[in-house]
Amino acid sequence: MWDQITQLIQQVTQQSVVNNPAVPNEHNESVIAEAKNTITQTLSDLTASGRADEAAEVVQNPNHPVAQQMESNFAGNIMQKFGINGAAASGIAATLIPTILNALRGGTGGNGSAFNIQSLLSSLGGSGGGNLQSTLSGFGVKLGLDKDGDGDVDLNDLTKMFK
């Protein structure tokens, strides 16, 4: 799934990033990685907080307020991190984020194979998969944060930390 997202982003970023004179060549890969991080982090945050339906809405509707926020965050990040001017960063974000969301919505990955949005959301921690939540809990257990010994890190563990 992640390979498909990466391939998809690589395909749609060619014109907006690689062939864009406003993006210094040495920053092409970093700008592309920032686009992937912005999208996956936003969708991951939504699904991990139990808002998988809203994450699906974001993919379905590029005019969704969260999609608009993604554009704004991405533009701000590439301005700050890579010195891209505001107009160019906004233009890149306004093209790139909706194009990637549209490709996700279109149902195919970068290699032409079927792209299942529910599988994507599940892999980000939504209903059905819970991989992100399990991974984070696993890290907590390894770090000794599982104070009640039940194999996960949750509010009960936090409460026990302060007793």
Rank of each mutant, 00 (worst) to 15 (best):
M1D: 12
W2I: 09
Q4M: 13
T6E: 08
L8T: 14
Q10G: 10
Q10K: 15
Q11F: 03
V12T: 13
T13S: 15
Q15E: 12
S16H: 14
S16Y: 13
V18I: 11
N19M: 04
N20H: 08
A22K: 05
H27Q: 14
N28M: 03
N28P: 01
E29N: 15
S30M: 15
E34N: 07
E34M: 14
E34G: 05
E34S: 13
E34W: 09
A35H: 03
T38I: 03
T38K: 00
T38M: 03
I39L: 10
T40N: 07
T40F: 09
T40M: 13
S44D: 09
D45N: 11
T47N: 05
G50W: 05
R51V: 08
A55F: 04
A55H: 07
A56L: 14
V59L: 00
N61S: 12
P62A: 11
H64F: 14
P65C: 00
A67T: 06
A67I: 04
M70L: 09
N73A: 09
F74L: 04
G76T: 07
G76M: 11
N77G: 08
N77M: 07
I78L: 05
Q80E: 04
K81I: 08
F82Y: 12
F82V: 00
G86P: 03
A87V: 13
A88W: 14
A88I: 10
A89G: 04
A89S: 08
G91L: 04
G91A: 03
I97E: 03
T99V: 01
I100A: 01
I100P: 02
N102D: 11
N102A: 15
A103K: 12
L104E: 11
L104W: 08
G107H: 08
T108F: 13
G109I: 04
G110P: 02
G110R: 02
N111T: 14
N111R: 13
G112H: 09
G112W: 11
G112R: 09
S113M: 08
S113C: 03
A114G: 15
F115C: 03
Q118T: 10
L121H: 01
S123Q: 12
L124E: 06
L124H: 11
G128W: 01
G128R: 02
G128Y: 03
G128D: 06
G129Y: 00
Q133M: 13
G138R: 01
F139C: 06
F139H: 11
G140L: 14
G140E: 12
K142E: 10
K142Y: 13
L145N: 00
L145T: 00
D146N: 04
D148R: 02
G149T: 06
G151V: 01
G151L: 01
D152K: 15
L155I: 11
K160W: 01
K160M: 04
M161A: 11
F162P: 07
